[in-house]
Design a protein around this nucleic acid. Sequence first.
DNA 1: TCCGTGGTACTA
DNA 2: AAACTAGTACCACGGA
Length: 586
Amino acid sequence: MHFVVGRLSSGAAATQAFDADGAAVGDLIRHADDAALAGFVRHSSVVSPAARWVWDDTARWYPRLLRHGVRVARCHDLRLAHAILRLSTLAASSALAKSPHGVWDAAAEVERPPTAHTTLFDVDVDPADDGADVPTDDVDETVAEWRRHLDAVRGSSAPGRLRLLLAAESAGALIAVEMRAAGLPWSVDRHDAVLTEAVGPRPPVGARPARMHDLVLAIRAALDDSTLNPDSPQELLRSLRRSGINASSTSQWELREIEHPVIEPLLEYKKLARLLSANGWSWMEAWIVDGRFRPDYVPGGAATGRWATNGGGALQLPKQVRSAVRADPGWKLVVADAAQLEPRILAALSADTAMAAAGRGTDLYAGIQATGVVETRAHAKVAMLGAMYGATTGESGRLLPRLARAYPRAIALVEDAARTGERGESVTSWLGRSSPLPPPSWFDVQSLASAPDASESDERRARSSAREWGRFTRNFVVQSTAAEWALCWMAELRTALMALPTGTDSDSHGAQASPGPLAGTVFDGRPHQVFFLHDEIVVHTPAPLADAVAEQVRLAAESAGRLLFGAFPVDFPLGAAVVDDYAEAK
DNA sequence: TCCGTGGTACTA
DNA sequence: AAACTAGTACCACGGA
């Protein structure tokens, strides 16, 4: 059963039941308010446990359901699905792909409002409530767009793959909203301790902490520059040169190589300055509310299908502060990451049985080294990364031919992807996500170079931009398929966790809700995902369920491998740990 | 004072 | 000094 969710012209929410072919099997039902809508969803989910909720934007509809205590098992996010179908080469002949760009394409680029100040006071801020007209949630338009999706998938060259991709992408959208609602458990005390340990006690606003102040004095003394501000790269570079240091930049990779008394305090200062400006006390005050970090996750935010985030720098949580991510009392964190995900994905994509075998039951890089293709694990790693990123120089470029001899299928796949991109064509992931085409300016550069009067520099420029795009498409096939695996992993896990019993007895005692940030929410007593970073997840779980959760995490990874690659013999082993804080894991 | 850009550094 | 993929976000700086 499918239920379409949209709005009537009056602004009221409405739902209607459909069969899998898009034929109505029920009447349009108007819901007086969010509570009524949530009640309807709750009831329908009991009657039809396999129901799929079809709506324009999960980020718009799902928070209000969660707020009323209702989770949904499955959805179809029209905005995200549209973006995939628009570009997918598998559905290139569909009406959707051939239609001019419209509101469904614009919606994907719509500004998502939540940033520090709104999230501080309203974590469930609704992008639709900003007063702007958003036509995609009109119920008739929603039904029409969904039917265009059904047509595009049915008429595609691989309906099964696309269906899986759209289901996985939509499951990701549900998870993103749930992670934001639950939040990443964060100990401000521990965070404060990390900062104080590094730089000294928190100073008044505008002042440098004690440790950094001392370092500035040492830097100024070493450079004989009593007013130098080391936060200014321009000033710093001038000062370094006056002291006879011939640096071209102030970046640490370059400074590291220089022998001079200023280098040690300077590198130390830069490290602390980074910590403070990226994740210091003011970050903590802006982003940690009631012991939770709630960034805005953006599924499909990168062209490859990887997620992006807005606010708080959730994609760059430094290892230094991860000890502040702490389970609530009586709870645990289950931290898991997929080991060498991308090369394993490449092995499966290319049906390279030799490479798959190298990773079976072991670290894949160690497995490659063990077959004698290269001398060390480090060489295996740098060569594999180089193959997937398109390295041509250095150690990685030198090792590539040996990799190509041992694993011709895998290397041929990424080389083909690179050549396709260099021609300005698109490449496609395993499940059907296709890369965007280069911008018009790219084609201009190419045609300029093929004109009869093209100069040497025209040709150089064209070659370089062609190779650059080729590196993107080379990596796209691997990174996008890895992102698909991760979505399937999370979706399988979410289903398994929802079926687990609760870990506390607060539910059975009704009014006796457990204290703490989760009391009264849909996550109370239940394991729930709280973080995701490309190939790594964190689940927050009642302690008694932690081992069961860890087992489900492993089973979900196996399921994801089978969902994508069937019986092809490739492993997706995990590193998994049950811990109290994030820094304890690996 | 506001806004865009360059430089830097952190993540997988 | 660039490079070998994908991101976010800070600061300083200079021009409107």
